[in-house]
Lab assay of single mutants.
Amino acid sequence: KYLVLALYDYQEKSPREVTMKKGDILTLLNSTNKDWWKVEVNGRQGFVPAAYVKYL
């Protein structure tokens, strides 16, 4: 498993997404889509914009 760092705040806009705050450390679950990565944060799984996170 990889960890990624939230570069920006992101507010979920659909039930498939998750909210994150700048500085959050997220567990990367799937990065096959170049635009949306599946992550786990605070016990929830969902998608965030790939451009908003970077590998640690």
Rank of each mutant, 00 (worst) to 15 (best):
K1W: 11
K1V: 12
K1G: 12
K1Q: 13
K1P: 13
K1R: 13
K1A: 13
Y2I: 15
Y2V: 15
Y2Q: 14
Y2A: 14
Y2K: 13
Y2S: 12
L3S: 09
L3N: 08
L3T: 10
L3I: 10
L3H: 11
L3P: 05
V4F: 07
V4L: 15
V4H: 04
V4Y: 12
V4S: 04
V4E: 00
V4G: 11
V4P: 01
L5N: 03
L5T: 10
L5I: 15
L5F: 10
A6H: 02
A6P: 01
A6K: 02
A6R: 02
A6G: 04
A6D: 00
A6Y: 03
A6M: 02
A6V: 10
L7K: 07
L7R: 06
L7V: 09
L7S: 04
L7Y: 05
L7T: 06
Y8M: 12
Y8R: 15
Y8K: 14
Y8A: 14
Y8N: 10
Y8D: 09
Y8P: 01
D9L: 02
D9N: 08
D9E: 05
D9Q: 03
D9I: 02
D9C: 04
D9A: 07
D9S: 08
Y10P: 01
Y10V: 01
Y10W: 11
Q11I: 14
Q11H: 13
Q11T: 15
E12Q: 12
E12S: 15
E12R: 12
E12N: 07
E12L: 07
E12I: 06
E12D: 05
E12M: 12
K13E: 11
K13V: 09
K13R: 14
K13N: 11
K13C: 09
S14L: 10
S14P: 05
S14M: 07
S14K: 08
S14G: 13
S14H: 14
S14V: 04
P15V: 11
P15C: 09
P15H: 11
P15A: 12
P15N: 11
P15Y: 08
R16L: 15
R16Y: 14
R16H: 15
R16S: 15
R16N: 15
R16C: 11
R16T: 15
E17Q: 12
E17H: 06
V18S: 02
V18W: 05
V18C: 08
V18I: 15
V18K: 01
T19C: 06
T19W: 04
T19D: 05
T19H: 05
T19L: 03
T19Q: 05
T19Y: 04
T19G: 10
T19P: 07
T19S: 15
T19M: 04
M20P: 00
M20N: 01
M20G: 00
M20S: 00
M20F: 12
M20Q: 02
M20K: 00
K21M: 11
K21V: 10
K21A: 11
K21C: 08
K22W: 03
K22Y: 04
K22N: 04
K22F: 06
K22C: 06
K22E: 07
K22T: 08
K22R: 12
G23A: 03
G23N: 07
G23W: 05
G23V: 01
G23E: 02
G23S: 04
D24A: 07
D24I: 03
D24C: 05
D24Q: 12
D24S: 07
D24K: 03
D24G: 03
I25W: 05
I25H: 06
I25V: 13
I25F: 06
I25Q: 06
I25G: 01
L26S: 02
L26I: 08
L26H: 03
L26V: 08
T27M: 14
T27Q: 11
T27K: 13
T27C: 09
T27S: 09
T27A: 11
L28P: 01
L28Q: 01
L28A: 04
L28V: 10
L28M: 05
L28D: 00
L28T: 02
L28S: 02
L28G: 01
L28H: 02
L28F: 04
L29D: 01
L29S: 03
L29Q: 04
L29M: 08
L29T: 05
L29E: 03
N30T: 08
N30E: 14
N30W: 07
N30A: 10
N30F: 06
N30V: 09
N30C: 10
N30M: 08
S31V: 10
S31R: 11
S31D: 15
S31I: 10
S31G: 11
T32S: 15
T32W: 11
T32I: 09
T32D: 14
T32L: 10
T32A: 12
N33C: 08
N33P: 05
N33Q: 11
N33D: 15
N33L: 09
N33M: 09
N33G: 10
N33W: 07
K34S: 13
K34G: 10
K34T: 10
D35P: 03
D35T: 13
D35F: 12
D35V: 15
D35C: 11
D35H: 15
D35W: 13
W36Y: 09
W36S: 03
W36I: 03
W36Q: 03
W36H: 03
W36F: 07
W36G: 01
W36M: 07
W37F: 10
W37G: 00
W37H: 03
W37I: 08
W37S: 04
W37K: 02
K38S: 08
K38P: 01
K38I: 14
K38E: 14
K38N: 07
V39E: 00
V39C: 06
V39L: 04
V39T: 01
E40H: 05
E40W: 07
E40P: 00
E40F: 06
E40K: 07
E40S: 10
V41D: 05
V41K: 14
V41E: 03
V41A: 13
V41F: 14
V41M: 14
V41P: 00
N42W: 06
N42H: 12
N42Y: 09
N42C: 08
N42M: 09
N42A: 10
N42E: 11
N42G: 13
G43A: 05
G43H: 07
G43T: 05
G43K: 06
G43S: 07
G43E: 08
G43V: 03
R44P: 01
R44S: 07
R44W: 04
R44G: 04
Q45H: 09
Q45D: 07
Q45E: 14
Q45G: 08
Q45A: 12
Q45F: 08
Q45W: 07
G46M: 04
G46N: 01
G46R: 01
G46H: 02
G46I: 03
G46A: 03
G46Y: 02
F47V: 07
F47R: 03
F47N: 04
F47S: 04
F47K: 03
F47H: 05
F47A: 03
V48L: 03
V48S: 00
V48M: 01
V48Q: 00
V48P: 00
P49I: 03
P49Y: 02
P49Q: 02
P49D: 01
A50S: 14
A50V: 06
A50I: 04
A50W: 02
A51T: 13
A51C: 10
Y52V: 05
Y52K: 08
Y52A: 12
Y52E: 02
Y52M: 13
Y52I: 07
Y52Q: 05
V53D: 00
V53K: 00
V53P: 00
V53A: 03
V53I: 09
V53G: 01
V53M: 05
K54G: 11
K54C: 10
K54V: 15
K54L: 13
K54N: 09
K54F: 10
K54Q: 14
K54H: 11
K54S: 12
Y55Q: 15
Y55P: 14
Y55T: 15
Y55L: 15
Y55V: 15
Y55E: 13
Y55H: 13
Y55G: 09
Y55F: 15
L56F: 12
L56D: 07
L56T: 09
L56S: 07
L56C: 10
L56W: 12
L56I: 13
L56E: 07
L56Q: 07
L56H: 12
L56M: 14
